[in-house]
Design a protein around this nucleic acid. Structure first.
Lengths: 145, 145
DNA sequence: ATAAATTAAATCGCCTACGATTTAATCTTA
DNA sequence: TAAGATTAAATCGTAGGCGATTTAATTTAT
């Protein structure tokens, strides 16, 4: 039981650490573009589906407006996106990609992809880890209720 | 290759999400004690080895003084730890657990343990995930150089 | 039709997190 | 030993991240 506890602590720490490693790796890779890691995640979401509300974006990224609103404001100031309040329902704010984000998509994804490639993560390893993480993720989510 | 670009298939996002789930789970569990998740990690480190310098603590937790110093100040204000500047080398600041942290150790670890238990994560699942995470972690670290 | 409930985004306060700089102490070395 | 390099912690500025509250618009139920 004591060992199991140790293991649990190690697991949460391992996840915490790995997330922070990813953060650093992506941050330095994205720095030349003037993007942060969370901002890149926003672009990934928008490249997949453009012109969504803040709410929808938050759902996809699991982020609330307390995080998104200021971040989107910064991204707008940097010319990545545009915010536009809906005419039909003025509560909603739609997010649109700007030209810059469309033009630089190829370059950014290529750079990131190269960087990750250089970590030599095998496809099998990748898949297994994804599977395990999603499994854990599901259990953590279930727990919440 | 294309669905490799999808947000939900990105390993970095899975890690990011899982870390945030852990964070939320631990945060709500620790809230009654007036502890945050990173503060709990500090206690875990100190329960393992007390009276260490800020530097050593940072090495263990992979945190710099920009994060630690204000956090330790808060933890001192809340009675968990005590900071004491070394007499022999006044550059160093040693961190000591306070009685409160020692007295509540059992209760806190028990509560956390119970909470995590309720996620029904099997031992095998644990081990595999840890193994995969450490493997990934190693590769990310290697990449840095 | 209007009061009440709901919804969406913004705002607020607090706590990480990190790179860069600053301050002060200690160590090296010329 | 005095100047310069190194070290440890603190400080600063910027950017998440989150729970809670606020504001304004839209729905709903009466």
């Amino acid at each position: 039981m004591e060992d199991f506890m140790l293991l649990k602590n190690q697991l949460c720490f391992a996840v915490y650490e790995t997330a922070s490693e990813f953060n650093k790796l992506y941050s330095s890779t994205l720095q030349p573009y003037g993007l942060t890691y969370p901002q890149y995640l926003v672009l990934l979401a928008l490249w997949e589906k453009d012109s969504v509300t803040v709410k929808e974006l938050g759902k996809k990224l699991h982020l609330g407006t307390g995080t998104l609103t200021p971040m989107l404001t910064r991204m707008e100031a940097n010319g990545w996106i545009r915010k536009e309040r809906s005419k039909t329902d003025e509560r909603r704010v739609y997010i649109f990609l700007q030209k810059k984000a469309l033009n630089e998509k190829k370059a950014i994804t290529k750079t990131v992809s190269n960087e990750i490639q250089s970590c030599n993560i095998g496809l099998e390893e990748y898949k297994q880890l994804m599977e395990r993480l999603n499994q854990l993720h599901r259990k953590l989510k279930e727990r919440e209720r």
